Simulated scan of single mutants.
Amino acid sequence: MSLVGENLRYLNLSYNKVSGTFSQTFARHIPRNATIDLSLNNLTGPIPDSSALLNQKTESLSRNVDLCGKPLKILCSIPSTLSDPPTNATTSSPAIAAISKTINTTPPTNATGGSNNVSPSGLKPATIAVIVVGDLAGLAVLALIILLVYQKRKKRDPKPTNNNVN
């Protein structure tokens, strides 16, 4: 079984302590419509100029401290000397998830037929709307309580009367 090729749909290598630079050969073997997740590793250097890698979401390549280039929007510096990968990296068995594109060839959609919209914070717009409405309802209840307390105090305190005796 090959991990890369035309049938690759999803490749998750996150949290694996993968270190080193991206190989241009590896990048060429990833199909343009495949989704890969290489976040939370120790990758370094520039991301190769490959449509498959450049079309990935920023999160799928994030938290690789020394990785740079598109789609991370981190400019790559020109190194003065080449360095070896870190020698103090601990080894562990990798966790790999790969799904062939023959399993599901269409992207997930919501009930209206569009794609799922997610805000940069990771919340769907409907969830954000529910939170805002809940906050407004809470403020309205708080305002009503304050108004009731004010009315009770107003009724309790008698109005000053003007009793002038001539």
Rank of each mutant, 00 (worst) to 15 (best):
L72R: 09
P85Q: 06
L13M: 15
L142Y: 05
G20K: 06
T102L: 13
I145M: 06
S77V: 04
G45V: 07
L72I: 09
S2Q: 12
A111H: 02
P48S: 07
N164I: 07
P85W: 06
A143N: 07
M1Q: 08
P79C: 07
N64I: 05
A27Q: 14
N88A: 10
F22S: 00
V65I: 09
C68K: 05
L40A: 09
D135Q: 12
L148D: 00
T91A: 15
T87M: 06
A27P: 13
T58I: 01
D49G: 12
M1I: 14
H29N: 13
S83G: 05
I74W: 08
K155W: 04
N64Q: 00
P125C: 10
R153K: 11
R153T: 09
T58C: 06
F26I: 11
I128T: 10
T25F: 11
L38W: 03
S14T: 00
G134H: 09
L40V: 07
P160M: 13
P158V: 12
P79T: 08
L43Y: 04
G122L: 00
N116K: 15
A126K: 09
A97I: 13
R32V: 08
K70N: 02
S19H: 13
S2T: 12
T35Q: 03
A111M: 05
L11T: 00
A52Y: 02
N64V: 02
P31L: 02
S92H: 10
G45F: 02
G5H: 00
S119E: 15
R63H: 10
P86H: 12
L72K: 02
S50N: 14
L67H: 03
L123H: 00
L123S: 10
K17Y: 08
V132N: 06
S93T: 10
D66Y: 05
A126V: 14
T58V: 12
L144M: 03
Q24P: 14
S77R: 01
A97G: 01
S62K: 08
A89C: 00
T102Q: 12
